[in-house]
Simulated scan of single mutants.
Amino acid sequence: MNLDPSPLFALSLFPYLLFLHWLNKSKALPELAVWGFRLTLLFVAITIVAAVIALRCCDAELVDIDALHGGAEAFLTLGNAVLVAGLWKQPKQQKGE
């Protein structure tokens, strides 16, 4: 039996959007850290677009096209860097209060 995981991937979007909504309302993290989580969502969107381009233009999967795969992964690196910068900033803010 060969099941397509795509529907589960699409369904996972809703809990993540709820998480982002809660995170924004709760003000539990600095705004920069919240932007890191938002950029992670952008990474997912860019990866989907890059996978479609790889399939349509090159008749290959995304992992086989280094330029597209690396470009998509750069957005994950950016999101993670912004998230870490925001979390790094948090203890300094609390000390000052």
Rank of each mutant, 00 (worst) to 15 (best):
E97L: 14
E73F: 05
N80H: 06
E61S: 15
A81V: 11
A74I: 08
G70K: 09
L42W: 09
L83V: 05
A54W: 03
H69K: 05
L41Y: 08
Q93D: 12
A81E: 06
K25M: 00
D66P: 09
G86F: 03
F75M: 12
A67I: 13
A10V: 11
D59P: 00
T77C: 15
V34A: 06
V52N: 03
I53M: 03
F14G: 10
I46Q: 01
E73P: 00
A33I: 05
L41H: 07
L87H: 06
E97M: 12
S12F: 06
A72Q: 03
A28S: 15
V82T: 10
S6M: 05
K95V: 12
L42S: 03
Q90K: 15
S6R: 07
I65N: 04
L17I: 10
K27L: 04
N80G: 10
L78D: 05
L68V: 04
A74W: 10
L78F: 12
F14P: 04
L17E: 04
A45M: 03
A81G: 09
V82K: 04
F43S: 04
G36D: 01
C58P: 00
K92A: 14
V82I: 11
V84W: 14
Y16N: 05
M1V: 14
L83N: 07
V63Y: 15
E97C: 11
S26G: 10
P7Y: 05
E61Y: 14
F37R: 02
L20Q: 01
L3S: 07
C57E: 15
L55Y: 11
F75Q: 04
D66S: 13
D59V: 00
P15E: 08
I48T: 03
A50T: 02
A67H: 11
T47P: 01
L23P: 01
L20K: 01
A45I: 07
L18K: 00
K95I: 11
I65Y: 03
L11A: 05
I46A: 08
H21E: 13
P5I: 08
E61T: 14
P30W: 05
K89G: 10
L20V: 01
A45T: 01
I46F: 07
A67C: 11
P30E: 12
G79H: 06
A28Y: 12
D64C: 07
S26F: 07
H69M: 10
K89L: 15
S6N: 06
I65Q: 03
A72P: 09
G86S: 09
A81K: 06
I53C: 02
L3T: 06
L8M: 07
R56G: 06
A54V: 09
L83E: 09
F19I: 10
V82C: 05
L8E: 04
W88V: 13
L8S: 06
P91G: 13
G36K: 00
P91Y: 12
L39A: 04
K27P: 00
D66H: 12
G86C: 09
T77L: 15
L17N: 03
V52T: 06
P30Y: 10
L87E: 05
K92V: 12
F14V: 13
A33V: 03
D66F: 12
V34N: 08
L87I: 08
Q90S: 15
K89R: 15
